[in-house]
Amino acid sequence: MDEASPTPAGLVPTAVQRTARVIEQVEMARDTFRLRLECPELAKRILPGQFFMVREPGLTDPLLGRPFALFDVACDSQGEPVGIDFGYVVVGKLTRRMVRWKPGDPVSVCGPLGNGFPEPCDGHLVMVAGGIGQTPFLAVTREALGQRRYGDPPRTAAARPELTLCYGARSANQLAGIDSFPAEGLDLRVATDDGSHGHHGFVTDLLQDLITNESAPTMIYTCGPEPMMEAVAMLAAEHDIACRVSLETPMACGFGACFSCVTRIRLDNGQWDYRRTCVEGPVFPAEKLHWSDR
C-alpha cells in the first residue's frame, strides 16, 4: 500500500462531542428543513464543507448518528459563533423524528469532522449543487465574499473569486434556501427537472453552457447526487478545470473508527484503494476518485 499515512488529511484533533440544544427549526422547502443547534465550540471551529454527526440522545433506534454538512454558522450580537445550521430532507428514521424537534431539545453532536473545502481561490469559482447538496455552499460563498470567517483561528480568505452557483432540484418547491444566499456577489443559476423554475433540465446543462459560452471557471466545487457529480467531474476533466467533489457516503461513526464509509481512490501507481470518506474527505480532488463501478 503506498502513501500510507498515520495522520491522513482531515484527521485533525479538533472535534468535540457535546449535547447541544435546538435553537430553531425552519422549513426551507418541501420536506426540507434547517435546524440551528447551540454549540459554540463546534461553531467556532468548523470550516465550510466540514460536517458533524447528529443523533437523538437516549435512543437505540435509530442507533447511530447521521452526518450533516455545515450550512452556516450563527453568530450572537457580538459576532461570536454560537450556533451551527444544517439542512436536511425528511427521508429516514432519524429525519422523520427531527421534524418534531423543538427549541430547547437536547441533541448529540460530534464534530467538526472531515476536511472541508480549501480556501477560496482566485479567478472564477463555480459551485454545482443538486438538491440538498447545496448546503455546503452558503458558507463557501460567505467566506469567498469576505462576509464571514470560519475556523479557529479564523482563516482569512485572501482571494475574492467571481462566484457562480448552479443549483438543480426536481421542482421549484424543492429549491431549498435560495433566499439565504447573498443577492450581491453571487451569480445564482437554477435548473429544475420539471421546468417549474429556471432552466428546464439538468444542472449540468447550466455548467456546460457556462463553460461553452463564457469564460471557463478556475475551479469547480460540486455536491449532490453521485451521477450528477460524476457528470460535473467529467466536464471539468474534459475542459481541464480543477474540481473538488464533496461525497455523501453512508457513515457509521464519522471520525474514522469504523472503516465503513470507504470510497475508491486512485493511487499514483495506477491502482486504487479504499479510503475513508470521513477522514480523508468528504472533499476530494475529482481526479482522485475512481468513478467506475462504484
Binding site: 484527521l11 484533533p13 479538533t14 472535534a15 471520525f255 474514522g256 472503516f259
Partner: peptide
C-alpha cells in the same frame, strides 16, 4: 480504529 481516531 487505531485509537488515534478517538483521541479527541
Amino acid at each position: 480504529g487505531y485509537a488515534r481516531e478517538m483521541a479527541d
